[in-house]
Simulated scan of single mutants.
Amino acid sequence: MPKVFLSIQGLRGIAALLVVVHHYYATYGSIHKLAGGDLPWLLSYGNLAVFGAVGVPIFFVISGLVIGLQRFETGAAGIYDFMAKRLARIAPLYWVMTLAYVCWASQLWTWPQLGRSLLFVERPVTGELPALGVGWTLEYEMFFYMAFAVAVVSGIVGTRARGAAILISVFALMVYVNLSTDAAVFGFSGAPVILEFCGGLIIASTIQNRAVTRLWLPYLVVALAILFLSTTAFVGESRNVIFSMWGAGAFCLVFGLAAAEVEGRVFMRGRAFQMLGTASYAIYLVHLVLQGSLLKWPIWYWRWDEIIEPHLGLVLMVSFAASCGLVVHYGFEVWANAWFRRWLLQWSPTRLQLSHPQIADGDGPRIRAVAQEPS
């Protein structure tokens, strides 16, 4: 099995840019519409206007895959180390971007909301979006990490495979109960999106089976068929149907790309794809700060919507978000994560230190998982 899944890294970059496109349409598409202008026709067919949000299921499946492939010590010390590495990967940039957003954004926010957002509990507690909207996906990330730590890293049920199977079963049961009752019994923890993380765990547990990986091409064909169908008017506008198709399509897409790489077929190995994948988390967080605060003033109050054609605006926004994400990643995220990780691990019960710098993102295959974004 490859040590670095280049195809998955490239896919993360594409997923981040898809979310940028989705939020561009949601923000500036509505501004053009309110101003009496035209919406981008490229996003006017079927469900293409919201298709960019498919980046989120892709992130969630990749996250489950990454966690499922990691190496870790079991027991209480193992739980601390595991969560410390995950927190160091997610928190520094998210905290900084959240604070930047509330400082520059024009909409109202409250101190309690900000506190809950920084602690990753806004949606579980209130059901609302955190101060930085895309943070709701990170709240699911942290919830998945904690559940995985309890069920698998703790070693409480024995083998790693048994713990993962129990975790998947419990999540599936909670989602089933939520969907089969009028009231959301499990609320946040029973949302169907949690199954996308489970899909990543399933991929991680089967990716070394050659009988499975030989079918990489059918997986990709099915993935592309599902995702294409989700954009058409044929499926209607039912959010539940569209979201289900995105989850299934993301699962097959990640499975197909990972299986293909095991079989020696690598996609998106180019430097541009790899750089975007490496900076995908920064792109994911930074773009909403740009769109939701800094750029709203010139667009709305200085009437840039009357000067810049919508499709040109889309190209400029994607390019600007990608450039800013790369700058933030290499200029801040890399060293901030490394510093915070060292600081957390110095309190580890096992006194683990960063003695293996060649292993990225906390052991296992070098795929960095974050998911990243709502819609």
Rank of each mutant, 00 (worst) to 15 (best):
L6P: 01
Q9A: 07
L18Q: 05
A26N: 10
A26M: 14
T27P: 00
K33Y: 13
A35L: 08
A35R: 12
D38Q: 14
P40D: 07
L43K: 07
S44K: 11
L48N: 02
V56W: 02
P57K: 12
F60I: 11
V61E: 03
S63H: 00
L69N: 04
Q70E: 04
F72N: 01
G75D: 03
Y80A: 12
F82M: 04
M83W: 11
R86E: 02
R89S: 03
A91S: 13
P92N: 12
V96Q: 03
M97D: 08
L99M: 04
C103V: 15
S106N: 07
T110A: 06
S117M: 12
V121H: 02
E122R: 03
E122P: 00
E122N: 11
V125H: 06
G127Y: 06
V134M: 03
F143K: 00
F148N: 00
T159F: 10
R160I: 11
F171G: 09
A172W: 10
M174Q: 12
Y176I: 13
V177M: 04
S180P: 08
S189C: 07
I194Q: 07
E196L: 00
G199F: 07
R210M: 11
V212Q: 09
V221Y: 10
L227P: 07
A233G: 13
V235W: 10
G236W: 04
S238N: 15
N240Q: 14
I242W: 09
A250T: 05
C252R: 01
G256C: 09
V266H: 11
M268V: 02
M268N: 00
R269E: 13
R269T: 03
G270D: 15
L276I: 09
L290F: 04
Q291R: 00
G292K: 06
S293H: 01
L295K: 02
R303W: 05
I308G: 08
E309T: 05
P310S: 13
L314E: 10
V315N: 00
M317W: 12
A321N: 08
C324N: 13
V328D: 06
H329A: 01
A336T: 08
F340K: 01
A360T: 01
D361V: 06
D363F: 07
D363Q: 06
R366W: 00
S375W: 14
